[in-house]
């Protein structure tokens, strides 16, 4: 019989508990350390490495801007800034012109935070667009019509984007280094599991909702792809 103390233990052998007598105690420790290490690498280090973090140009408080709205998650409140154009296309993140409507007026009620100073001096005064980073930017092959979902489907904004009408700070923007997509597409959890409708923005999530609402025909490829 082999003398286990002299044999270098291998993970393959250690994987079978019955082979325990082949492996020394040190071998088991090595296996355990390796196993824990691999889990740590996969679940903690890898996601950290995979996503780069970038701060937004300055902080934006949705709460402050929606203070007068009865319900900060109401579609109509959102549509004030995240508006539709006449041809039905969606503006997305508002451009400087939209901000100007309120912020150009020196009499308008303005706060006194640093972020606001940054906005007024660096962008507003210079007439420079704010280079916001979008949390929901889909890949190039995806076609999405906000009009179909918001106007016709009467879906609330938070169903996909999550409730952030009352948020005071913008979350850190994180981007997948390989694909270049924001983390919101795959979802915050590396396992890909979700609890809320807005946790992920993958094709399966679109399809799931279409099926639930009885619109299987909208799972046809060309409805969401271009």
């Amino acid at each position: 019989m082999k003398n286990s103390a002299e044999k270098p233990s291998s993970i393959v052998v250690a994987a079978f508990p019955a082979l325990g007598r082949y492996v020394s105690k040190g071998g088991w420790l090595c296996f355990l350390a390796g196993f824990v290490g691999a889990l740590f690498l996969g679940w903690y280090v890898f996601p950290k490495l995979l996503y780069s973090s970038q701060p937004q140009p300055f902080n934006f408080s949705h709460k402050v801007h929606l203070e007068e709205a009865d319900d900060p998650e109401d579609v109509e409140s959102c549509l004030n800034c995240h508006a539709f154009r006449d041809d039905g296309t969606f503006v997305g993140i508002p451009r400087l012109d939209k901000c100007k409507e309120c912020h150009e007026d020196p009499e308008s009620p303005l706060g006194d935070s640093d972020d606001e100073a940054t906005f007024l001096t660096n962008y507003m005064a210079e007439k420079k667009e704010v280079p916001w980073l979008s949390y929901s930017r889909q890949p190039d092959c995806v076609y999405f019509s906000h009009a179909a979902h918001v106007k016709m489907g009467e879906i609330e904004c938070k169903t996909c984007h999550g409730p952030h009408g009352g948020s005071e700070v913008l979350p850190l923007y994180r981007e997948n280094r390989i694909s270049g997509y924001p983390i919101g597409i795959w979802g915050e959890r590396i396992s890909g599991l979700k609890t809320n409708t807005w946790d992920r923005m993958k094709m399966d999530d679109c399809a799931e909702c279409h099926t639930e609402k009885g619109h299987e025909e909208n799972n046809a490829c060309f409805v969401c792809h271009k």
């Binding site: 539709f84 041809d87 039905g88 019509s145 179909a148 106007k151 016709m152």
Partner: peptide, 17 residues
């Protein structure tokens, strides 16, 4: 096909199906 989607989006914005 994108022209169809464009037309549909316009129709939805006008409240048409």
């Amino acid at each position: 096909h994108h022209r169809l989607m464009r037309a549909r989006t316009k129709a939805y914005a006008d409240g048409r199906r």
